[in-house]
């Protein structure tokens, strides 16, 4: 838990250095949009899930995704009672690191992609973001005590519907953005 908080802080320091004042309004409004989008409940089979969208955030926000995710989590913890005050560091890391990885891996390819390719690349990116988050959540559970390990494994299985929904929606979102407003995925350049 403490090491998670430390790494998060380190990432935050880098991210805030890269965030100049000119771009704060932009990052904030996009962060708010992602916050709203995560309220959407997407039906998958018999159940429904709320999206994390960290793959998409990584692509669009780049490094600003780290403080944006922290802010969203603070608001969730304080106003909705989800998550908690003390696991804020770990949670931020578990969501933001996959976002950064997705951004680094997929953003260059997406800028050149067109048509169906965007859909598949986007789906891959959205899926990967959630899978990484699921792995990291299980890992942090396992690290905090070997007794949590069986539960961590089952929890990983519950991520499957989320991965599907996330991949599908992220794919379509990116395909839409490339068509309508390609400047959106170039904002961090």
């Amino acid at each position: 838990m403490i090491s998670g908080a430390l790494v998060s802080t380190a990432l935050l320091v880098v991210a805030t250095r890269r965030l100049d004042f000119e771009r704060i309004p932009q990052a904030a409004v996009l962060a708010a949009a992602f916050f709203i989008a995560s309220l959407l409940s997407v039906p998958v089979g018999p159940s429904s899930v709320h999206l994390i969208l960290n793959g998409l955030m990584g692509i669009i926000l780049g490094w600003s995704a780290v403080p944006a995710i922290l802010v969203a989590l603070v608001m969730q913890a304080v106003f909705f009672g989800y998550g908690g005050l003390l696991v804020l560091g770990v949670n931020t890391l578990n969501i933001a690191l996959p976002a950064l990885i997705c951004g680094l891996l997929f953003a260059p390819a997406l800028r050149q992609a067109n048509g169906k390719n965007t859909l598949y690349l986007g789906a891959l990116c959205g899926g990967l973001g959630v899978i990484l988050t699921g792995l990291m959540v299980s890992l942090s559970l396992g690290l905090s005590g070997p007794d949590f390990l069986p539960a961590a494994k089952i929890m990983l299985a519950t991520y499957t519907p989320l991965v599907l929904a996330e991949a599908a929606v992220t794919g379509f979102t990116l395909a839409f953005i490339i068509k309508v407003a390609p400047e959106l995925i170039r904002v961090q350049e």
């Binding site: 996009l30 949009a33 709203i36 989008a37 959407l40 997407v42 969208l53 998409l56 669009i60 599908a168 929606v169 992220t170 794919g171 379509f172 979102t173 990116l174 395909a175 839409f176 953005i177 309508v180 407003a181 959106l184």
Partner: peptide
């Protein structure tokens, strides 16, 4: 939903 989120972001 993908288009909805896309529109929201745009």
């Amino acid at each position: 939903f993908g288009w909805l989120i896309g529109m929201l972001l745009v």
